[in-house]
Design a protein around this nucleic acid. Structure first.
Lengths: 192, 192
DNA sequence: AAAAGCCCTTCACTTAAGTTAAAAAACGCA
DNA sequence: TGCGTTTTTTAACTTAAGTGAAGGGCTTTT
């Protein structure tokens, strides 16, 4: 698990043993059971998450309905907007599988960044990269139909379709579960 | 104009005169005429933009159709994904008004960041903030209907509805111009 | 083992967006 | 000002998503 982390970091900056030990001394690793809610609407939090194993989901509850907007799986980071803006969270985060997560808080990050400017660089690079990636996803969502979005997901993240309940996938695609079911049937028809 | 920039920067880090002069010596300020295309599909670029005055638009051309995905107005920054990923651009950027822009390139940024770690910190904070903001926008888009999106835009960025042609707004909202026109008529009906 | 709950699918119906076409309005420039 | 182009609106029709309801297959609970 530690190597997974260090391999990930190595894509952005190279660490010496001192720096690696500094990270390990922070006690970031946590095992979390499926179903655990990491963040609730209205809560304030300073925690960021990095998924080493498993899958976490962010969702809103609007009009008594869950609206899933993101899934984060292996090697993906998540800093909720409420942490950045220091506001109460508008959404929930829960584990939809047993997970191994890195949990860091922003006070800790400030401290580490001061001590090791390298981390500051890594955070910048990672944020810039995530911003670009999210921009591309957003654009793809805007410019395509629900059916195209599903086909795109099938191509880009086939694992999600396997490991995530369909009604959660539906709102992730911006539609109702019934529509996803129908849409899948339609695609299946076309193939035959 | 310079003060607009320094006021913006002051929200993230505080600069001394040396640092301010270092920025000014970079010759970042550019006046750009309406209609100018800043980036084309297929091009590689190292340029980031910051809008001091005016409005720039990012759009794709898919199936011979323009799909507008973003507008950037006063005090908004834009680093295209192609700059981050070092890949050919998938989209176009053009000025839809006469603009005053800051144009920086990534080589320059690397240099400045090395010289003044403060800039590194500013870039990180700005990226994190933009990431959170974009996340919220994306989520709002996913969880709402075209009509709700339009009403939301009317509330949050009424200026855009005034200064941007409607067919560009339409694809920004994820629909066709005819649908936007109809939707507006529908809203107007309801009000009366 | 029966009951309850949840999830997915299906169906009939409603609503709204896409499409195609044409007219009306606004704009740009000579 | 006037002509030509672009943009917006309107309309009729098609397609697909939303809605409400019902059924079937699982799993969990009692």
């Amino acid at each position: 698990m530690q190597n997974l982390l260090f391999d990930f970091i190595a894509k952005y900056v190279s660490l010496n043993d001192d720096e690696k030990n500094a990270i390990l001394s922070l006690d970031l690793f946590h095992s979390v059971k499926k179903g655990t809610i990491l963040l609730k609407e209205g809560q304030t939090s300073k925690n960021s998450y990095f998924v080493l194993k498993g899958c976490i989901r962010t969702y809103y509850i609007l009009d008594c309905e869950e609206k899933t907007t993101a899934f984060h799986t292996e090697m993906e980071a998540l800093t909720p907007p409420c942490v950045i803006n220091q506001t109460p969270s508008e959404y929930y985060i829960s584990c939809i599988e047993d997970c191994i997560l890195l949990v860091s808080n922003s006070d800790m990050e400030v401290e580490v960044n001061n001590k090791f400017p390298k981390f500051e660089i890594m955070c910048r690079k990672l944020s810039e990269e995530l911003l670009a990636k999210q921009r591309i996803d957003f654009d793809a969502f805007k410019t395509s139909s629900p059916e195209q979005r599903y086909l795109n997901l099938l191509e880009k993240r086939p694992d999600l379709i396997q490991r995530v309940p369909q009604h959660q996938l539906a709102s992730y695609l911006g539609i109702k579960p019934q529509s996803l079911s129908r849409l899948r049937a339609r695609i299946f028809e076309k193939k035959t």
